[in-house]
Structures are given as C-alpha cells and as structure tokens.
Design a protein around this nucleic acid. Structure first.
Length: 768
DNA sequence: CAGTGAGCGAGCTTCCGCTTGACTT
C-alpha cells in the first residue's frame, strides 16, 4: 500500500519533490500529456457536438498502466501538474484514464519548487477546474480541425505531405513577407559627412573631437558644395549639453529570451539551446527551461542579493520583481534561473558551462542597480552654412548591473564606440583636421534568424515555449523555409576628403550583404503561403491566435460553451475548405518569363513534380517541351529570362579525359561531372556553367583517392563484410547495415571473428 | 544517389502542446 501518490509532468521535477516530501509520498511523472485525439478521421465527431475521441498513444501505454496500478494501491492521489490550461487538462486526462475516485483524488498546484510551497499546496487542495479543461479541449480541437483540413487540401492543390496549421503557417508568412519587403526595397544612396576636429589640451598638445553632420546629402554634388564651403569656414562650439542617463537590467530569462541571447552571444541554434538547457535542468543546475514567466522566487532573489552584496557591495544591489507582458503568457513556472545562485560556475562540457554562465549572469544582473551614465552632446556651427556638426559621448559614472551582464540586440549596424569628449565650452574655436563625405546606402529590411523569428512569434502570441523550437524545425523540414548564409559582395563607394586645403575624391571598397544563419522562404513556401492567404484570410491573420485566445479565456472563466464556440468557427471554415477544393486550380506558381530567341517558344517556370523547373514550349505542342531544374539559390519569383536560358546550356561536354567524354550537368543532388558513367559532385564553389576541364579532372581524381581511402579491411571468407571509413569514422558494413566499432579497438586490427561478434551484439540490442 | 516532368490509382502524408529518451552511419 502507498499512502500518497503525487503525479507531476516531469521526472526531474518528481525527483526533487520526492526529496522534500519524505517516505509517506511516492512521486511519479506522466511525461507530459498521456492522451491525445485519435489520428484517423480527425479524431473528432464533428456531427456529434465536436466530441473528441481520445486515445492513449502507443508510447504512453506503458507509463499509463504503471500509474494506473500505482493509483489503485494508493490511499490518496495528488494531481500536481502545472497550473495552466495544459496542466489542468493533463490532470483531467489522468483522472479519467486512471479511473481515479473523486474522494481519493486531490488537485494541487504550486508555483515554485520549494519545500514550503509544496507543503502549503498539500494543505489547500481543490478540484479539477472543468472550465479550464474545456478551454484546453477547445484549443486542441481547433488546432486539429485547422491542421487536418488544411493539410489534405494542400496535398491536392500543391504537393503531397505538406502541412499547414495555426502556428506554422503564420511563421512561414512572416518569412515570406520579409522576403517580399526585401525584393521591393530599393536602396537609396546618400552621403554621410563626418568631421575630425581638435582643440589644444592646455599642455601644448591637441585633443581630437569626432562629430557627424546633422544633415545627410542626397547627391555627390551637394556633398561637394558643402565640403568646399568648409574649406574657408570656422567651426565654433555652439552648445554643450550634459544629461544623466540610466540603464536598467533586462528581466531574467524566459524560453524565448534565452533562445535569442544564446543565439546572439553564443551562436547557438534554437534547438541547441533547448537541448543544452534540458541537460542543465535534468542535472538540477537550472529551473525549468520552458517558461514564459520572468518571475523569480523569493528564495532566488534572496540568494542573488546575498551574492551581489558579497561580491560587489551594497550599492550594487537593487532587487526587483519583473512582470510578464508577453501576449498569451500562462506563467505556470518561474523564469529560467540557476537552481543555486551561489554557484557561478558548474561542471559539464563547454556548451553547458557557457549557457549556464549566461543564465547565471542574467539572473544576477536582474537584481542589481541601474547603470548611471552621462550623455554629452556638443553642437558645432559652421560659419557660412546652416548645417551643424553634432558630437555625442557617453561616460559611465556607475556601472551597476553592467559589471556582469549586457543584453545584446539584433541590430546589425556596429555601434561606434562613444567615449569621453574633450572639455570644450560654448564659443570655443575648433581646428578642422579632416572632413569626409562617404557614400552610403539605406539598409534593407533584415531577414529573420531562428531566434529573431521566435521573438516575433512571441510578440504576436503565436506558439508556446514548448513549441518554438519544434515549429522552427517543422517549417524547415517541410522545406517552406531554408536557413542559409549569404556571402557578401564587395562594392565601391565614393568618398570626398577635405584635408588642409585640398579636396579630393577617392573610391573605397565596402563589404555588403553578408548574412549568416538567416531564414529564406523557398518557392514551395511562397506558393503555399499565397494559396492559404487567398483562401483562408482569417487563419493567416496575425491576430487570429490572439482573438481565439480571448474566446478560450471566456471558456476558462465559464462564460462560454466550448462546442458552440468551435461550431461558430468551423462552419464558415469548412465551407471555405470545400469551396477551395472545388474551385481553386493546382497551385504551381507558373509564370511566363518570355520567349526563347532560338525557337520562339515561350519560356516559363513552375513547380514540377521534383521541384522548381524552367520549361521551353508547352505540353500541348507537337514537340515535347524541354525542362531544366532551377539551381540552388534561384527562385521562381526572382529568376530572369536570361538566367532561365542559361539553364538549358546543360548538360554540356567538356572535352575528354582517359578517352571518355566529360559531361557537366545538374541532377537530383546538384551539379555533377559525369565520366565513364560515374557521377562526381561539383563542390559549392564550382559554377557548372564556367567550370574548366582541368578542374573537372581534379574533382574526379580527388574522389578516386577518397574512395581508395574508404576501404580499411575486408575478408576473403566473408566478402560482404567490409570495414570502411565513413563520415563519422570507421565502421563495419554488412548486409546493407552498418555497425559501430568500439572506440577501444583499432579498426585495421579487427579479425573476422571480432567483427561477427560486434554484429551479433548489435543485433540483439535492436530488439525491443 | 544522379539523366525525371503524362496519367491512373492505392496508400501514405498532416495539427499544437505537454514531456523525455533512443537514435546516432
């Protein structure tokens, strides 16, 4: 017999709680939801009041039967899942599926995992909140209806295996819209004028003062006119303004802000951040990593305060309670923070240490004093011209929280270091050292990174802490979006320089357009987006989630009936699905680019069965049309007639090698050179249209050497068993399966007997 | 592993949100 069975969501949490509660309590975890809608036929009885059909998924059967038998043996079952919509639903599903008895079941909640909080929770149990459960059912049913009616529509109208949903489709829309903004953007040139001046320092030397002109010029002529005026101008200090400035620390981490900062400061992908954080959580080093709350427990604030006082002194301390303001936040947990604030460093691998350090510093800084700065602005008049030079400088008076942590921004423009300005005063005359007018262009909108997309989604209230990373994987997995780097190009800019009496003009080079890890929409992504936008405006609206969330809240408060809310949504929605099924054509993104100068036939692009293609002629022509796949990086939306014509130059012959032809082409896996009916992939830097014979031969020879290297050992008695060198190091290949070689063994010394043993062992492990 | 692109039809794909392993050729 068990006295008390406590069920929570997460096993790490169960372990901690068990320690607090002692022998009378057995604490187990449900590993999240234990039931879900059945997969076939929507899993919803649409005709019968949208009754959900719940099943226990295969991978949850084991845990459910274990919990069920424990519950039977228990005097009291405590459902201690999170206090939000999903947590309440998990408690209810447990109640139903484990067939718990009402008199022997209690529902409790706590907001922080401390002994006090848990004991208090045990003293004030309540019942399962049916309204809150209903709100979750409405959320679940709505998402299933949207996802499982839109996706099949896409299979018919665009391509099999595609998907659409309330969250992912809007995430894709953000990326598509950004790309189109960039396409529409036309950079404007302008000239920025900077001046370097000097004043005597009173000790026989000079101090420099840098300042920017308040006006930008639109043309070289205007800039030139101004600079020539400056040749004879005097430069006088007009005003010196000093203003105190305060900077406050950022709140402690939530899932979204952790993902952003880990991306900016450590270069982690969203997935990487989450899996490292998971390890830190499981080993008890940080609190739960999927949260939208910025709240810290009193205990955490207390220990942080102690640490700050010890390390930096009282004047660095300023404790605060932050409030969460993001849309749709449900605050079932604390902010992400170190479990023990007094541990500034931990054991673990490098990535774990770096992420921990980031969390520790951010948490500590959040309880520290503001930084105090003094901002100085000096305005300089130019005699004979209305424009003014402005110099700004910031001096740190008290560092405060900046001692440990400074939040980064997504702003890509490098901030010029602004420091102390020389002690000038009104009417001081300045010496002109050098004045430069440099050509610049306005900056195009910045593409999303994974982390900045998460930030945007959070702002719009779309998705939850537990789904940001999976959603970003899904849209990439479906090939709606691709994460890529773009090499910058060098471009020439004009610069005018006024130094002494000479005004000269020169060209300077500038790197432009370099991007790393940015999200680009694919052709399929844009076609699917446009199709959904045309037919399902309401779901694609950025406010859709926010407006249904309002209704879920009303359901949660007991002021609205959930099936009728779903019905009001579903009827018009389902009609639109029907209408689109019948009326709308297959969306292939077809577009005519122009005419083939040789044959006079039209050249068009579209999505073919295997991806984007260019086509000469039409299917109805007597002669079959010719096809060519678009290259990586080309898109239906931006490809030009000339680029499309280029594609038909392949495949082409590039002379001979070893008495056989070298043929260059583009296949399923990208550009290749074919020789003696073998294929060799070109490298990323090779252009299939420009590649020379020598380079093609070089590729073939390289590949041959690599293959030779591939075979480490084989046995005459067993010709099908090979020891090979692969991407992940040496391995054994046998019967089309691969087997790992123990690290302790040198692969070239393995005997046939040993290989067979390894295979046998691996075979027995696979069974499950 | 590579060159395709018509059309038919069977059988498959798919959502969001809660959680952790089991996988590492």
């Amino acid at each position: 017999m068990i006295k008390n069975l406590v069920i929570v969501e997460s096993p790490a949490k169960a372990k901690t709680i068990e320690r607090f509660l002692g022998e009378a309590y057995t604490v187990k975890s449900s590993f999240g939801h234990i039931r879900d809608l059945a997969k076939k036929n929507l899993g919803i009885d649409v005709e019968g009041g949208f009754t959900p059909q719940y099943i226990v998924p295969a991978d949850k059967k084991k845990i459910v039967s274990e919990l069920k038998s424990l519950a039977k043996k228990s005097e009291m079952v405590w459902l201690a899942t999170d206090e939000d919509r999903e947590g309440e639903a998990i408690a209810w599903h447990l109640f139903e599926e484990l067939q718990l008895e009402k008199e022997k079941t209690r529902r409790i909640v706590f907001h922080e995992i401390t002994k006090d909080a848990i004991l208090k929770a045990l003293e004030s149990p309540r019942y399962i909140d049916t309204h809150l459960v209903n709100a979750q059912q409405a959320r679940r049913v709505l998402d299933r209806l949207v996802g499982f009616e839109l996706s099949p529509l896409l299979w018919k109208k665009v391509k099999p295996s595609l998907s659409a949903g309330r969250v992912q489709s809007v995430a894709v829309k953000l990326i598509v819209e950004k790309e189109r903004e960039i396409q529409k953007f036309s950079p404007k040139k302008y000239f920025r004028v900077t001046g370097k001046f000097s004043v005597p320092n009173g000790k026989g030397g000079q101090i420099q003062l840098k300042a920017d002109l308040s006006k930008r010029f639109e043309s070289l002529e205007e800039a030139e006119t101004f600079l020539s005026k400056c040749q004879s101008s005097e430069f006088t200090v007009n005003t010196v303004e000093k203003k105190p400035l305060k900077k406050s620390p950022a709140p402690p981490f939530t899932t979204s802000t952790l993902q952003q900062e880990a991306s900016r400061k450590l270069g982690f992908s969203v997935n990487q951040t989450m899996s490292v954080a998971q390890r830190l959580y499981e080993s008890g080093k940080i609190t739960y990593m999927r949260t939208d709350s910025v709240n810290l427990s009193k205990l955490a604030i207390g220990t942080a305060a102690g640490k700050i006082k010890d390390a930096f002194g009282e004047k660095y301390l300023k404790t605060r309670n932050f409030t969460t303001k993001s849309k749709g936040a449900q605050e079932a947990h604390e902010a992400i923070r170190p479990t023990y604030m007094d541990r500034s460093a931990i054991e673990g691998n490098r990535t774990e240490q770096r992420l921990y350090e980031l969390i520790w510093k951010r948490t500590l800084a959040s309880q520290m004093s503001e930084a105090q700065l003094e901002k100085t602005t000096i305005s300089i008049v130019v005699s004979g011209a209305p424009e003014r030079f402005i110099a700004t400088g910031e001096v740190l008076i008290f560092d405060g929280f900046l001692k440990v942590y400074m939040e980064s921004t997504d702003d890509e423009q490098e901030e010029e270091a602004k420091g102390l300005l020389p002690p000038v005063k009104t009417d001081d005359k300045l010496n002109r050292e050098i004045i430069e007018a440099t050509e610049k262009t306005t900056i195009q909108p910045v593409r999303y990174t994974e982390a900045s997309l998460v930030k945007k989604m959070e702002e719009l209230g779309i998705g939850r802490p537990s789904t940001y990373a999976p959603t970003i994987s899904t849209v990439q997995h479906r090939e709606y979006v691709i994460k890529e780097d773009r090499k910058g190009v060098e471009r020439e800019m004009v610069q005018l320089v006024l130094k002494g009496d000479s005004l000269s003009q020169q060209n300077i080079k500038e790197k432009y357009g370099y991007e790393k890890g940015k999200l680009f929409p694919t052709d399929i992504g844009m076609i699917v987006n446009d199709f959904l936008e045309q037919n399902f405006q309401n779901i694609m609206n950025f406010n859709f989630t926010a407006s249904v969330e309002e209704e879920f809240d009303e359901i949660a408060e007991g002021n609205k009936d959930w099936p009728s809310m779903i019905e009001r949504f579903y009827k018009p929605f389902h009609n639109k699905v029907d209408a689109a099924t019948q009326t709308s054509e297959r969306s292939k993104g077809e577009k005519i680019l122009g005419e083939d100068p040789k044959s006079g036939k039209p050249i068009s692009v579209k999505i073919g069965r295997f991806g984007p293609i260019a086509q000469i002629g039409e299917a109805s022509d007597e002669e079959k049309p010719r096809f060519a796949s678009l290259l990586k990086g080309q898109s239906l939306e931006t490809i030009t007639l000339e680029e499309a014509l280029e594609l038909f130059r392949l495949p082409r012959t590039l002379g001979q090698f070893e008495d056989e032809e070298l043929i260059i082409g583009v296949g399923k896996y990208g550009p290749y050179v074919r020789h003696k009916s073998k294929f060799f992939s070109l490298s990323k830097t090779d252009d299939p249209f420009a590649i020379k014979q020598e380079r093609a031969i070089e590729i073939i020879i390289e590949k041959r050497a690599q293959e030779e290297n591939r075979n480490i050992k084989q046995f005459d008695e067993e010709p099908g068993l090979l020891i090979l060198n692969g991407r992940y190091g040496p391995y054994i290949s046998f019967n089309k399966k691969n087997y790992r070689i123990p690290k302790s063994r040198k692969p070239e010394e393995l005997t046939l007997e040993e290989c067979r043993k390894i295979i046998e062992k691996a075979g027995s492990r696979v069974k499950k």
